[in-house]
Amino acid sequence: MDGVIDSSSGSLNGDNNGSSPDSASHLQNQQDAEARRIHRGHVLTELLETERIYVNEMASILKGYRDQMLSEEMMHLVPASLQGKEDILFGNLHELYTFHNEIFLKDLENCISTTELVALCFVQRRDTFYRLYSFYCQNIPRSDRLRETLVDTHLFLQECQKRLGHKLPLGAYLLKPVQRITKYKLLLENLLSSSDSGSCTKELQKALDCMLIVLRCVNDSMHQVAITGFPSNLSQQGELLLQDPFQVWTESKKDLRLRKKPQQRHIFLYQKSMIFCKKTSKPGHNKSTYQFKHQLKMSQIGLTESVRGDSTRFEVWLQGRQEVHTIQAPSEEVKNKWVTEIKRLLLNQLEELKGEKNQTVQHESSWSQTDHIMGHAQHTAGHATARREL
Rank of each mutant, 00 (worst) to 15 (best):
L105M: 08
R388W: 15
L346K: 00
L47F: 06
N56A: 14
T153C: 07
M74T: 12
N286R: 14
D22Y: 14
H166E: 03
G64M: 01
S11E: 11
M1I: 08
H363C: 11
T370Q: 08
A386P: 10
R36G: 15
E109R: 08
E389L: 15
T385S: 12
K335N: 01
V339H: 03
S11H: 07
P21H: 07
K176A: 06
H42D: 04
R36W: 12
V334P: 02
G84W: 01
E116L: 05
K297I: 06
L47D: 01
K183D: 03
K357R: 06
S299G: 13
V248Q: 02
H372T: 15
E102L: 11
L89R: 05
E102D: 05
V214L: 08
I88L: 10
L155M: 15
K272T: 08
V334G: 02
S288T: 12
R257S: 14
M1H: 12
A377K: 14
T228M: 11
T182L: 11
N56T: 13
G84T: 05
L269Q: 04
R313A: 12
Q349E: 13
N110W: 09
Q31V: 09
Q349C: 11
A24I: 10
Q271H: 10
Y184E: 13
L318G: 04
L105H: 11
Y184T: 08
E72S: 08
Y130P: 15
Q138M: 10
C137Q: 07
I88R: 15
S143G: 09
D152R: 07
H266M: 01
N16F: 11
Y290D: 13
E203L: 06
R344E: 03
S60Y: 05
V248A: 05
T201S: 09
G64W: 00
L62T: 00
D15F: 12
S232A: 15
H363P: 00
V218Y: 00
K85F: 05
L105Y: 04
T45R: 13
T45W: 10
K202F: 07
S235G: 02
Q124F: 15
N92F: 12
H39G: 14
R131E: 05
M211Q: 03
L187H: 01
V361T: 10
R259E: 06
Y54N: 03
D255C: 07
E356C: 02
I373P: 12
S281K: 13
L164F: 03
H266W: 07
I103C: 15
L132C: 04
L208E: 04
S195Y: 03
E46G: 12
N358I: 01
L174A: 00
L204P: 00
H166D: 04
P169G: 02
L47G: 02
E51W: 05
N358C: 11
T153R: 05
G198W: 04
N190D: 13
T228E: 13
E189F: 05
F230E: 01
P79Y: 03
C160D: 01
I181P: 00
T149C: 13
S331K: 02
M211C: 01
N56H: 10
N101W: 08
Y97E: 03
L353E: 12
K253M: 00
T380M: 13
A80K: 14
Q263I: 07
S199T: 02
L390K: 15
I61P: 01
L242C: 08
D220I: 06
Q264I: 00
S273R: 05
V178K: 03
N286D: 11
E323F: 11
E333H: 00
V118I: 10
